[in-house]
């Protein structure tokens, strides 16, 4: 059996759209950059601002590794267009420690060994910071449910829950 096929055309490109200048406040510092309309906040952080602490694990909102806080709320930066966040305040994992002193969540993650490879960790910590700010999770069950948008393939979940509980007690 032999037949031929071609990849289906996916539309063709006339002229690439102009880059768009935007201003973000990232970790307290104003950042001006020029992005394509389809540049995600994640790519803007990693490639344009060299803030590689925020991770790309799926690029489709399926893993949570890219979680950052935008105007105080946790979101998936991979499904966020940078241009849409013009003027927003973005906090990444690089912005959590102050003057070299770790954020209570960062310290708790070390204390409880809440990671192995470390690739989901930035997202877990930013997500946990968002979770604590929301104030909806009290029990371990509630933490587990509200942290389920952050996949840890190394399987550190029980330690992640313990770390968040420690940080909650101390905050």
């Amino acid at each position: 059996m032999t037949h031929s096929g071609t990849t289906k055309p996916k539309g063709s490109i006339a002229a690439a759209p102009e880059k768009i200048p935007i201003t973000l406040t990232v970790n307290g510092t104003e950042a001006k950059l020029s992005v394509a309309p389809w540049t995600t906040l994640l790519d803007a952080l990693r490639d344009h601002l060299d803030l590689t602490g925020t991770k790309k694990g799926c690029d489709h909102g399926q893993c949570g590794a890219c979680t950052v806080l935008v105007d105080g709320r946790r979101i998936n930066s991979c499904l966020t267009l940078a241009v849409m966040k013009e003027g927003a305040e973005v906090t990444t994992v690089e912005g959590l420690a102050h003057n070299g002193e770790l954020h209570p969540l960062q310290q708790a993650f070390i204390d409880h060994d809440a990671f192995q490879c470390g690739y989901c960790t930035s997202g877990q910590i930013c997500s946990a910071a968002g979770l604590i700010a929301e104030g909806k999770a009290k029990s371990a069950d509630e933490i587990r449910e509200l942290m389920s948008g952050n996949i840890c393939r190394c399987g550190a979940y029980p330690n992640i829950v313990a770390a968040i509980q420690q940080a909650m007690e101390r905050s």
């Binding site: 946790r74 979101i75 998936n76 966020t80 968002g130 948008g149 952050n150």
Partner: peptide, 9 residues
């Protein structure tokens, strides 16, 4: 549905 991050968005 989804995750808290997605629900926030």
């Amino acid at each position: 549905g989804a995750s808290q991050q997605l629900r926030n968005m």
